[in-house]
Write a protein that binds this DNA or RNA. Sequence first.
DNA 1: TCTCCAATTTAGAATTGTTCCAAATACAGT
DNA 2: ACTGTATTTGGAACAATTCTAAATTGGAGA
Lengths: 138, 138
Amino acid sequence: MTEQNLRGILAEHGLKATSQRLKILDYLATNHTHPTAEMIHKDLPMISLATVYNTLEHLVKSGLVITIDQLDDGKHHYDYYGEPHYHIINPETNEIIDANNFDMRPLFEAAREITGWNISGYHIEVYGHPQDNKKDEA
Amino acid sequence: MTEQNLRGILAEHGLKATSQRLKILDYLATNHTHPTAEMIHKDLPMISLATVYNTLEHLVKSGLVITIDQLDDGKHHYDYYGEPHYHIINPETNEIIDANNFDMRPLFEAAREITGWNISGYHIEVYGHPQDNKKDEA
DNA sequence: TCTCCAATTTAGAATTGTTCCAAATACAGT
DNA sequence: ACTGTATTTGGAACAATTCTAAATTGGAGA
């Protein structure tokens, strides 16, 4: 992504454009690899680990990034959320697939029915695994 | 819940029925309060904290209990999952409401379309907050 | 019912992901 | 360019969770 794009995105969300934020946001928007803070720091070693955590906190608070916390490694994983989407996870391998072929509005409506609240977002993880054989393709 | 019920549930999931597991499962199935390990230990002080963690791990692995990790207090919260359901969360107060007025099968079908996998379960959190005023009730 | 042993429990130590600190730096508006 | 505030930083501190190894226990089989 171009630096101008990144600056625009940060500005839209009220975040100062520091070189560290530009690098981390670019990293997340480019590599959809759902990294941990540690992995980001390993790939961007010029940015201190404290700043990585600090920046991720800002990005999550602003809604630009979300966390995935169900990978049983006890670490937060981070995911650029420029376009809302849901996750399909294979718990045996921790593979994560991003998908957006589902209209969430009926779910929002259902949640609104129960609470009366304004619904503003969602996190969805769906679990599954590849089939062992092809028997049901017949 | 009766002890026989609890023993049956544990047996169905291949878990030995220890007095600690019976107490913790009963606690979770009765109080839908989404507690942390620490909170469970506080309410069941005769069970060591190590055993609380240990037992929760077994219950989560078996699918009887799920974790809720989005409450920005840095702690895992646990939720009896006897009946699958989704969560409506107010992030300002950390209030969690359990709901099940939504058919997840279309979501499963969408996930299956993308991956070809067998889909086995889901975790869904929907975020929202009460409206400040009633203006849109008109 | 009794025995036996693998599974479970336990207290406390150890680990480690994350947060905190206070000094140095850098962004952005004027 | 100048200034004030927000951000960054390395390292110390913290706290949730896991580990350890010894003691206990549930339950399958005799």
